[in-house]
Design a protein around this nucleic acid. Sequence first.
DNA 1: ACCATGTGGTTACACGTGTAATTCCGGGCT
DNA 2: AGCCCGGAATTACACGTGTAACCACATGGT
Lengths: 335, 335
Amino acid sequence: MAKEPKAPAAVTSADVARLAGVSRATVSFVLNNTQAHRVSDATRARVLDAARQLDYVPHAAARSLRAGRSNLVLVPASVSAAGRLVSAWVDDLESELERHGYVLVLHAGRFPDPVRAARAWAELRPAAVVALDGDGLTGQAVEVLGRAGVRGVIAFGSREVAGAHLVGLDQTRVGALAAEHLVARGRRTLGVVMPQERGLATFARPRLAGAQGVAARSTATVTPVELSYSLESAAELAGRWRESGLDGVFAYNDEYAALLMHALRGAGLAVPEDVAVVGCDDLVLSGMQQPPLTSVRLDLPTPAEVADALHELVDGGTAPQVRGVTPVLVQRQSS
Amino acid sequence: MAKEPKAPAAVTSADVARLAGVSRATVSFVLNNTQAHRVSDATRARVLDAARQLDYVPHAAARSLRAGRSNLVLVPASVSAAGRLVSAWVDDLESELERHGYVLVLHAGRFPDPVRAARAWAELRPAAVVALDGDGLTGQAVEVLGRAGVRGVIAFGSREVAGAHLVGLDQTRVGALAAEHLVARGRRTLGVVMPQERGLATFARPRLAGAQGVAARSTATVTPVELSYSLESAAELAGRWRESGLDGVFAYNDEYAALLMHALRGAGLAVPEDVAVVGCDDLVLSGMQQPPLTSVRLDLPTPAEVADALHELVDGGTAPQVRGVTPVLVQRQSS
DNA sequence: ACCATGTGGTTACACGTGTAATTCCGGGCT
DNA sequence: AGCCCGGAATTACACGTGTAACCACATGGT
């Protein structure tokens, strides 16, 4: 272990300086286009040439150590927990942030509590954090980040968190909207799918709570139903559907909805006659179902808008409010 | 700009030392459990207490600057380009790497050429890089990484790259397998779906090439067909399907396959009678289709296996060969 | 008396970078 | 000549950490 097999001698700015016959400071000035300082065109060319020749790559760690902050933007989320909708959005956000010189980095990691999570994120000393699950944040966690030099925390969530920039997104409202719709369509015994895949509970729980809130204000009932994303699990659930007596279900997701509809059909249950199904995210998938799937659409703020706000937050400590997310029900034939 | 709104004075190990009444070195020894050095239980407790009290978080940049290497493992991939299969795999890999003390980080970014990409990755000075698109790598790119202190490069790909640890995965073979199957089922005019979404071309192109190779060795023909992931694009494609005369198609993906089958049905074409369809990844989705979808399954090496190899690579410079990926055709009713 | 040994701690340096402060130097003005 | 000025580069330091080398001091053996 630690044989140090081959140390190809990382090239530093000092090497560039030596080759160009100038001081390290001059190299830094040239490579960063520092306006405050003048450097003759001749040496500038020599430096650039040397850098190219040695294939010099700056050391991000050293740079952000010196600068006190990095150009990293951390998005704490696991790859698979993010659905199609979020994935595409994060992709675009990455491009937008790149325009401002930031580097978006996705990093999951399960932690027992918000402060512990914040500490782990803080180690990277990112310039900003975009928390898609803002309700998993606390003031104390944000404070930990702040003390680590994080200049901007954008939180998608339902409640204000001290020190964080809120983008309204109430998962409770999502569940409520679906339940209200089902009730309006005459359904009274509702189910809410709780995906068993890890990482999804964070969104599933408040959605369930929202649906339950609607039930409490009407004559309907809401029952959570567990479902793993597999044909077997879905078939098993559909097999004992009749005895559950559920006549409407909010399936967390368009993907889970599609899976469930498939299994229900297999069990001889008709959608929407026997069971009304509502999905979420309004994916392309929902239009492909038989019958086409009613879905809750979430139109997220444009990545550009969020990127700009984030930049202003990092740069000036303040930013204009970002438009929140209002869930909208898109009715199709499954309900 | 740069108002420095509030600098909550990041707490460093020096602060911890001051509070505990010891030197910074002692703090470091305690917090890292350095075995080479002894420290009395009394002061150890004082240090730990002080650290907790100040909520000390180490500075990853400073640490890796000193150490010469970080504990980052970079997976260069965009979030959305990774399908369900890869997402789940990366998720598991993250857990496995965590056991070894690494931090997996996902980061996309489009670059004109491999060396440019490598330079961008190298700035982070990761301990290792796991390139899912290993064929997009060159020896020169790996060298850039090596010179930046990257100790292990694992490349999923079809050809050996100097300095990288190859995990066999021949996308050409994937396309070939699908085409061979379609030919064996009596199809002669084949189509291969080329998704228009950005980032997917890297895998789509070699798959097409593989299918074309099969055609060249038989009486069949292969035509690329462009498809965006939307109902409109699929309907448009299906609308002019008859005139194309294609009687079999490899759809890149189970998701694109499902979309295409939906559109074909809408255009009055029967699967598999008129058109045989083959997908890829063998997702849950494929079992939900009508008819169930034939798919190319890729069983990836276990994340644990890759994580172990990666650790040995970083630690000792060498690692045993990781089992490659052999695509397997799973036949169902769509072909 | 003196040295080996072990314990618990500190001092000093290096990692690679950015930048404020400084130096050097030639030239134009009084 | 003396002086200031501005261009062009350098020197010196700080960022936060890990660790090798060193030190003080007690203990016990010869």
